[in-house]
Design a protein around this nucleic acid. Sequence first.
DNA 1: CTAAGTGCAAACACTTTGCACTTAA
DNA 2: TTAAGTGCAAAGTGTTTGCACTTAG
Lengths: 144, 144
Amino acid sequence: MFSDATIIEALRRKGFKATSQRIAICRYALNSREHPTVQRIYTEVKKAHPTVSLATVYKTLKVLMGLHLVQELVFTETETRYDSNMEPHLNVVCLRCGKVSDAGDQIGKIVAKAASTARFTVTGQRLDLYGICESCGKKKPTVV
Amino acid sequence: MFSDATIIEALRRKGFKATSQRIAICRYALNSREHPTVQRIYTEVKKAHPTVSLATVYKTLKVLMGLHLVQELVFTETETRYDSNMEPHLNVVCLRCGKVSDAGDQIGKIVAKAASTARFTVTGQRLDLYGICESCGKKKPTVV
DNA sequence: CTAAGTGCAAACACTTTGCACTTAA
DNA sequence: TTAAGTGCAAAGTGTTTGCACTTAG
């Protein structure tokens, strides 16, 4: 959980101004556990800042990526999502309802081992499982 | 290694026509170990089929995805790449030179365990590690 | 006060689509 | 023979950029 104070402090320390739009965007992107899309963040932030633009949301997310506070999950079929869980973990992505949840956080050791074998310095990771979640599997026993 | 005969057979079994362009695209996409981009495949196929279009490459890659023979690796910063290794494995992605290599194929068990815990039916996965590869790390000990 | 950030609209890059022509089966 | 596929160019889509205005520090 990131408080506004923490957000402001983190931005300022890196030389970024803590504007009210930025704080609102960060607050939502960093505290949401649902891997929100840009549109979702935009819609949410618009409630308190009706004039905010999509461009500002995009720019702020780039700032957060630079600060290594969020990670992008780009998909072809669906919109890009943003994940503020920076620990090694598996994203479980349902191809039917689009929901993204977290799982398997004991994966850190395997990642570390593979990286050292490959003599590779890891700065980030994206570990996705695609398939059908339990509730979708029940609902419609059809294709994929 | 996919022979032309195997490719033709796989296409026909699913009701797709085995055109010469398609065979060439499949041959390259399925046998290349370098996780090629669309442009790369296009350039390569153009050598034997100078009139081939980008649209055909895109369409054929969608067919291959439908057949679960390749997987898309979408990135923001760089072009989408295609991976014909469908077994659970880690993609080691260098952020400096863009090279993508494979590692850690003992990851299958962890994936299976996490999926069963989440009661999730896995149909595909994307397990990427981002960072700096050994040779890039030596070359330029700077940012990132 | 002034460098950084905002918000609009225009520009981009990659991908998809519509359609007449071609071709595998 | 004919449904499926090709290749072009045009249309989309999500994202980025240029620039005058605004604002945090």
